[in-house]
Design a binder for these strands. Structure first.
Ligand code: MN
Ligand code: MN
Ligand code: MN
Ligand code: MN
Lengths: 220, 220
DNA sequence: CTTTTATTTTAAGTTAACTTAACTTTGTGA
DNA sequence: TCACAAAGTTAAGTTAACTTAAAATAAAAG
């Protein structure tokens, strides 16, 4: 049977690898909300199974086996998210929590079947790429944080961080969704909040909000 | 978070209550493939939570709370089964194993939403009743085991035991599905096998097979 | 460099869910 | 009715996944 705990650790490791494909144990402890000691414990187990490369006091690296294992879990998670969104009609702010459990259930056969139903999708409801069955990752469009745009610039929403359910609910409320066009009208330099135009309506958004929305810059 | 083990015990207890609403610990151990000692252990925990009534060496009974808890799990299981069958298109022999894991995931909200998508279904793909959200159980049509029919009698399939995947695959192969009409042409008394007519084709079926198919007797 | 702080590991202990082995209770059938 | 098999419990031990507290190491800062 699937080992939920190990799967969650591996996927947390995968999602937190830095530019040097390394992860600090520290970060994992925080993301998983467990003690550092628990992480050390698990790292030893994962290393014993050759899923990670681990030496005391060093940063963690995934082995090729570990990486493909991790990618498979991320794949399951994101396919579930998209399935729940598109087929079941769950709003994008609810899919992450459901998928967090569902990712550990469902045979590969079921996951693949859902992938077919969804017509081999490349991105989940938040714009994150869905690893294919062969481990390849769809290329994402070049994007920058909305907070990087200058006045008068325009962007198409490519991805949003699903870092808080409340955040996603609010985005939906003001009309921010994938592919939506956003124009920056004004930037207030004292707090970096922005006045933006979304589908004909103006909204004032905080720096924090803008930081977590990623857009592809477009003309006009 | 949901407690998978406890949920599986409760649902096993529920599904094995006899005519006196009692269960033997023994039976649970077998169904769950664990030792009797493990069952005793769990029974104490469930009793401490007032989910069952338990006294050493006596048979088990569900409390009202325990019963509604158990029914909820059965409900989840069967809604998942039907969802996988109708929406995802999984064959009826595959849905049980998937649902066995999925039944522990998915918020109540998700389960209810699937129920709506399925238009408040009353029976799962094997003809077992799906408890409603209020705990009520759809009434099943009067049925008898196919093996009870006499020569020349006819029945409509109302329910099948999903006791083996292989069994379900074979049923599908010979055209036995819910609502299918079956006519008994001949019975061989030496082994109680039957020659039956299903959608224009004749098949010889064993007593064991007939034992696990339940039909509503009809004229003609 | 050396001190301080942050990170990581080790040690010891807990809890849930199991196991096997030994013992107790119950129910059956000669 | 009593002997014995079946069912159930207890005892002792294991494993996975955690905890806190203390010790070790690494990184940062003066
Ligand atoms: Mn998870
Ligand atoms: Mn997502
Ligand atoms: Mn289950
Ligand atoms: Mn079923």
């Amino acid at each position: 049977m699937r080992n939920i705990s190990k799967e969650d650790y591996l996927s947390a490791i995968y999602k937190n690898i830095d530019s040097n494909s390394k992860v600090k144990a520290n970060v994992i402890a925080e993301k998983m909300d467990v003690s550092n000691a628990a992480v050390t414990d698990m790292l030893k187990k994962l290393a014993k199974e050759s899923l990670i490369i681990y030496e005391p006091y060093k940063t963690i690296k995934l082995t090729p086996t570990g990486e493909s294992y991790a990618k498979n879990i991320v794949r399951r998670h994101r396919i579930w998210e998209l399935f729940l969104h598109q087929i079941v009609g769950l709003p994008w702010d609810k899919v992450h929590d459901e998928a967090e459990n569902l990712e550990h259930s469902g045979s590969d056969e079921l996951i693949n079947r859902m992938e077919v139903m969804l017509n081999f999708p490349e991105f989940d409801p938040h714009g994150d790429p869905i690893p294919a069955i062969d481990g390849s990752i769809p290329k994402q469009r070049d994007s920058v944080s909305l907070s990087k745009l200058k006045e008068k610039e325009c962007g198409l929403v490519v991805r949003v961080n699903d870092f808080s359910q409340n955040f996603l609910v609010y985005l939906a409320q003001i009309g921010i969704e994938l592919k939506q066009k956003i124009e920056v009208k004004e930037i207030r330099s004292f707090d970096n909040s922005m006045l933006v135009l979304i589908a004909g309506n103006e909204f004032n958004i905080s720096k924090t909000l803008a930081d977590n929305v990623f857009v592809e810059i477009v003309k006009n």
